[in-house]
Computed example of a mutant assay.
Amino acid sequence: MVKIGIITGSTRDSRVNLQVAEWVKSIADKRTDAEFELVDIKDYNLPKFNEPIPAIMSQDYQAPEAHAWSKKIDSLDGFIFVTPEYNKAVTSGLKDAIDYLYVEWNHKAAGIVSYGSTLGVTAANNLRLILTVPKVATVGPSVAMSLFTDFQDMSKFHPAPYHVDSLNNTLDDVVAWSTALKGIRQGVLV
């Protein structure tokens, strides 16, 4: 059975991101085809990315805080990224968390749940592009939510019921791709 991490995309104290990630997990936990775990990037206390050499070259140069992050991402087979949109992009905290690692992301699948004033679509597209470098395959189905209709006062998450179907479509593909890519990572054709 594959392990899928639901990755938060914000570290701000006033974030609504955790509410969205918890909703994703509540839907995902009804499934029996994978294990799902909430992975809050804020818990890892990663400093701003400022490593002397790229992570692709050597993990020996990682900040000490990145070692636990590395172990967590390495233990997962796929991901659901929950990203807000800040200035038409992902947050710097999420970008830094991705940049700290390289091989730990390789040949895994990801789905995207985004939200923002314009549904977080630009952030989702930005994230798809970012994830190509560490060889993460992003699935086509995604969930895009509005700060104006899926949140009360932009602070309390109340998703429209139809988002459940979109999320299940995303989860279907992430589980399928994660299962296939796990075989590839193990050198086995499935």
Rank of each mutant, 00 (worst) to 15 (best):
M1I: 08
I4A: 04
S10V: 08
R15T: 04
V16W: 00
V20F: 13
V20H: 11
V20N: 04
V24S: 12
E35T: 13
D40T: 01
F49L: 15
E51R: 11
P54I: 08
A55P: 02
Y61N: 10
W69S: 07
S70D: 13
D74G: 02
G78V: 01
F79K: 03
F81W: 09
T83N: 05
K88S: 13
D96E: 03
A97P: 01
I98C: 12
I98W: 08
L101W: 11
L101V: 12
E104K: 07
N106W: 14
G111Q: 06
G111W: 08
V113H: 10
S114Q: 08
G116S: 05
L119G: 00
G120H: 03
V121Y: 07
V121R: 09
L127S: 10
R128H: 09
V133W: 10
P134D: 01
K135A: 07
A144D: 01
M145C: 06
L147N: 12
F148V: 15
D150V: 01
D150R: 04
Q152H: 12
Q152L: 12
D153K: 06
M154D: 08
F157A: 03
P159F: 09
A160P: 00
V164G: 02
D165V: 14
N169H: 15
A176S: 11
A176I: 05
T179H: 03
G187T: 09
V188W: 04
